[in-house]
Design a binder for these strands. Sequence first.
RNA 1: GUGGAUGUAGCUCAGUUGGUUAGAGCACUGGAUUGUGGUUCCAGGGGUCGUGGGUUCAAGUCCCAUCUUCCACCCCA
Length: 455
Amino acid sequence: MAQKPSIPKGTRDFGPFEMSRRNYIFTTIRQVFEKYGYQPIETPAMENLSTLLGKYGDEGDKLLFKILNSGDFLAKADSGLLQEKNSIKLSTQISEKGLRYDLTVPFARFVVQRRNDISFPFKRYQMQPVWRADRPQKGRYREFYQCDVDVIGSNSLLNEVDLIRMIDEIFKRLNIKVIIKLNNRKLLSGIAQTINQPERLTDITVAMDKLDKIGVEKVYDELRDKGLSQDAIDHLEPILNLSGNNTSKLNCLKELIGDTSDGSRGLAELNEILSYLNQFELDAEIEIDQSLARGLNYYTGAIIEVKAADVMMGSICGGGRYDNLTGIFGLPDVSGVGVSFGADRIYDVLTELKGFPEDAATTSKALLVNFGGKETEYALQVLQQLQVAGVASELYPDAAKMKKQMKYADQKQIPFVVLIGEEERTTGILSLKNMKTGEQQKISLPQLIEIVMNK
RNA sequence: GUGGAUGUAGCUCAGUUGGUUAGAGCACUGGAUUGUGGUUCCAGGGGUCGUGGGUUCAAGUCCCAUCUUCCACCCCA
């Protein structure tokens, strides 16, 4: 027997059933993006490695898929490195392209390259697959789609408000109850300053970020492992243990870190965003979460993360403000803010919630049974008229047994079958069978078109 | 990258302390029904048991390696 075919680890095929559901998600997201004035762009699946490397931290660099150069690439490689079998050093010589890791960095590259053609603020959305050489597990794939929406070239916090409103509207349309968590990178700096460990910001935030997952004690353990003094940890305690509603959290934070410059600015930004949001009726719960850190590598202001309220799953949407992402490509002082919706995780959440609309599958409205000979020719005429009228319809390609053709319609969930045999051809009165009820009626073509169209 | 589980027909799985020809359900094909699907009945096709080594008279079953998928960690959508 031939070898069993398979696809690479962490990738998936999508059949018609999955595709109609995926398209439901993409369409919903796209409609909202466009309603708020964002425009679509696309960028290549592969980027130069120089564009990607160093933008996501060491961990990110490891997870990049690299593409081998074409041709006899080993001949051009340093023979010493080949001898050493030093993969890391060698890879820079035999690979200069990689698959994109996210949509934000390629977007920054895009903006820098076209800076003279773009009018700022530039509001764009982008829905494309990204690739990460991660180990797959629940809710984690090596190829997955992100739906990014960003505005670049504006410092206004109204953009953050815009994004949060879009998040709210999208998940409202998808019928997913969500919690939108907000934090601010400046607030995190303020915390680090307050406990006199400003240079330990990353360690502190990475540990704090796990608060939800591992609990306070484990966070303290991790901080101790990282070499933080007990004194500093004691200072951190009231901040970690903050609870209550957003207002009381913010008030407490003001007491605790309000006297640091970063802390007070972060608090001011959060307050401003919240007061704008008060003017809107949002379905989602907005929660200030002082432990939220996320990627951190390029975020400088707001940090946003969205979780489904009723399903255990990693975040389904996340993002934040980055003040200088384009700076690394030579365009400094352009601030942007954006979020990314994880389409695949949203799919998984909707599956668990049984939240997809019923008739999502894309299929013909009518199947014409093929009887062969003159009947086939007549059926082609009928088919043409149905299609001219805009009815998605098809003629079974072979004059197969009726049973087989009926079964085909049944399995494709085609709601109507049209029978055109000798009798129908000579009289011009067609037999229309409703596959759901099993009822069959004899009607003229115009009547048929009307019935099927109204279904 | 680290740790744990897993792999038998297209799919979901059974397979006794190692023992002769590896089973079931679903799916598929044909028939009962030569112009009627989704129900029923009958028949049929389909497996070098993930791959490669080893132990044994004998391996789906035991041992080692490797790959796959899944779960957790790291990290993340």
